[in-house]
Amino acid sequence: MSFVLTLLGAMLAVALELLEALAIVLAVAVSRRTRDAVIGAAAAVAVCALAGALLGPVLVAKLASEPLELVIGVALLLFGLEWLRKGVLRLAGRRARSSAYAEFVEEREALAAAPPDGPDWAARTVAFKGVLLEGLEVILIVTALAGPEDSRAPALIGAGLAVALTVVVGLVLHRPLRRIPETELKYAVGVLLSSFGTFFAAEGLGVEWPAGDAALLAIAAVFVAASQAMASRLRLPRAAAA
């Protein structure tokens, strides 16, 4: 049970973050030059790979089991609840729906000027910054999900599948980018990460969940029920939302 949920959580979270990074890189490539977009993105990928290689082993080696679970739980709660908060606000109509396509259009408009003859540092910087910020979030989420020993394989498999999925989406853009129900997927990731966060943080505080890993499903159900109730309470009337 926990294997499937970890894999799903890692895959969705990583795919959605990479999709946003892809939108920025594509916008740079379309508005300026592909070469500069790729150089900026590749530099950011190298920094993220270094951060991942350092962060994961250090975190696992330095902390004993219970403090590690507490640290991982708190990190997942910080990410998960933020995704869930935004998801509730979007479902309630109090925040614009999430759209990598809109981000693509916005970046493209911001980079509308013609590129210089030499190296286009502005374009490289935009691609670098976009990929670095999304990439660091990916590293932090995957490191946290892969922290407990039996979660390592599903978290890494999920992340790998997400990378493959994003590459496929990138190859056949841009129509699929508009069709992805990002708001709903991000809400689901929020529920999953918050559930894992609560589960691990409680274990770090000495809790033994009844039914073991299956408790994750019950926690996720509570998050869905509570957040849906919050969204319907916050929902704006149609006239006010328009």
């Binding site: 609840l81 869930l84 908060r85 509730v88 109090r94 505080l205 000495g206 926690i219 919050m230």
Partner: peptide
């Protein structure tokens, strides 16, 4: 009792944190 029911205490506190963050946003 903490070992068996402590998770529910944390879950309730986490949901309260989510609710408060939504209130501060609206």
């Amino acid at each position: 009792w903490w070992q068996d029911a402590g998770g529910l205490v944390l879950l309730a506190l986490v949901l309260a944190a989510l609710l408060l963050s939504l209130r501060s946003n609206t």
